[in-house]
Structures are given as structure tokens and as C-alpha cells.
Design a protein around this nucleic acid. Sequence first.
DNA 1: TCCTTATTAGTAATGATTACTATTACTAAT
DNA 2: ATTAGTAATAGTAATCATTACTAATAAGGA
Lengths: 152, 152
Amino acid sequence: MDSKTKTRMTYQRQVILEELAKVTSHPTAYDLHKMVNKRLPKISLGTVYRNLELLSESNEIQRLDVSGHQRRFDANAKDHHHIRCIHCSRVDDLPIDTTSVLEDIVFRTSEYTVLGHKIEFYGICPECKVKEQKHQEKDDISKDKNKSKTRR
Amino acid sequence: MDSKTKTRMTYQRQVILEELAKVTSHPTAYDLHKMVNKRLPKISLGTVYRNLELLSESNEIQRLDVSGHQRRFDANAKDHHHIRCIHCSRVDDLPIDTTSVLEDIVFRTSEYTVLGHKIEFYGICPECKVKEQKHQEKDDISKDKNKSKTRR
DNA sequence: TCCTTATTAGTAATGATTACTATTACTAAT
DNA sequence: ATTAGTAATAGTAATCATTACTAATAAGGA
Ligand SMILES: [Mn+2]
Ligand SMILES: [Mn+2]
Ligand SMILES: [Zn+2]
Ligand SMILES: [Zn+2]
């Protein structure tokens, strides 16, 4: 948690990373535990969760928080879109180059029958922006070795 | 569950609907239970969940399955987009008219600092399409008083 | 008013994720 | 190589949101 904690490359972490990289199926933590378990029969589900969390925080992998469904993980850390089957919950990549994202574009790029899509924006609400500014001021008084935290 | 079940308008259901309609805050089931509880001190959380489920199935309200967060409900059943604050998890409406949805459009329409967005398409994968067709064939043999289930 | 049965309150169960804790094992300094 | 410090682990308990169960209640049509 400190800024000067050294993360160690454990064998467990390495195997988790390797097994995730082998597949394009966006497995859940549980799926991955089953996979890794074949090589490390003693590894615990908690270890898989913790490492997936760490790896995604350090941007080596990507966490997919699928609306209303179980969390999934992706060895491809680059930002890209996904499509989920409403029947079997399978998740696949969507090889579209962002921005001009319309359903008929997907229709041409994917084997799926597209039924719809959901866009979720995220950001900082006006209230929190004010709070953030106040904190910034306090920090600026004590020390000011921070990179630019806020944008725009 | 049967096709000929008659739903009854209970007082609980009515109050849940009324209280949800009063706010624009996209409350969770728990939030709504607290609100409704003031008028109906004996109502249980399960009843709130069940009715919110029923009401959204009959399209009187809308379920918002926010990625990685608690489910929320919206008295406005019309399809529209939302924005969520990464700090306080508050969810607000996004008054944009779909299709040409880019972050800078949001930037002009919302008070939020937009940090990004996530698009989730949903549909039917090729595998499931095949299965669906097989079921269709079986159904067609026995009886064929079905509306068109599959599109495209 | 009287049935039928959808719905309820209360509570238990489930499932995903996180927290805890004693033990293990990297890593760097002696 | 030995030791000390401390990340990380296995195993398990706890938490949180949601769903399931069940005996009792109450819509609402006859
Ligand atoms: Mn992917
Ligand atoms: Mn809304
Ligand atoms: Zn499918
Ligand atoms: Zn906020």
C-alpha cells in the first residue's frame, strides 16, 4: 500500500498471467482458478482474485466489469470493446476502432446478431469536483510534488 | 409464471411505483426500501426486489445493471443513457439522442468531467443462433402459433 | 360473502467477492 | 550461507447483494 512496497514475482502470479494469456475467452476468476489449478493444485481462489486485482491495477491485464454479470479478465490490457451473448454470457472482442461505434458497424464486423448496446460513461460529478478542488488546495499548502491529477 | 396469471395491484406495489416516480436519483432496491418504509413500515426488502423485478419486466420501470456496481432502478422506462461518478457512484441521466454518441458530445451536455465510457453490445452468438434454429424447427413441427422470435 | 391463488413478511440460502491470519518464501544485508 | 524483514500464500471466515422458500394474508372475481 505504501509507495515504496516492492512487488515480488511469485510463481503463482506468473502462472496466472501465462494461463490468462493463453486464452481469448475473457474468463472469470473462478474459470481461471480451474485453469491454473491444473499446474498448481494447491493454489487458492483468493490468490487468483488478489493477483488478478494487482495485475489489473498495474495495467498488465484488464478487468471487465460486465453489467449485471460476473467480473471477467482480459490478458489484452489495451482498451477495446466487447460483445456479450444474452444466452450463454460468452464475451468476445469487438474489433472496431472506437469513436464511430454504431450497431450496424458491429453488424458488419461480428458474427453476432446484435440486439442492442449500452453505453456507460464515467467521470466526476460537479459535487465531487468541488470536493476535489478543496483537497487539492490543502495538499498544495503542505507539499506540492504531485503530477497533474485533474484534467480539464 | 403461466401465461394466464393475473397480476394484482397491491398497495405495496403502488407505493413502490409512486416513490420511485418521485425521484430522479436512480435508487437501489435498498434505497427504495428505506423510502417506501416510511409509508409502509412493515414492507420487506424482498417485496421491494420482487416488485421492482416485476415492474421492469412489464416495462413500467427500468432496471439499470451498472457494471461492477449495485443494480439501480429508474421510473423512466424509456431507453436513455446514463453517467456514473467514479467517486460517489451517483448516476445521472444523459440527455443525448443516441447514435452519434461521443465523449465530447457528453462534454457539452453534462456537468461531469468525462473520463471515459464503456460500450456494451448484446446479442446472440453464432453458436446460440444454431441452437435457436434447432429449437425453432422442433417447435414448428408440433405447433406453430408463435410470433417471429428471431430477427435477421 | 366466499373461494382461489397471487402476494406478502420474514427469514434462510446462495454466489461473488473481500478480509483475516498463521505460515511460507523472496530478497537483501550481514 | 544465515538471518531478518516482510510480501505473498493457503485456507477459511465474513460480507454484501440478490434470490429462494414458506406459512400467512389479502386481492378480486363469482
Ligand atoms: Mn477483450
Ligand atoms: Mn435515467
Ligand atoms: Zn451464446
Ligand atoms: Zn460524485
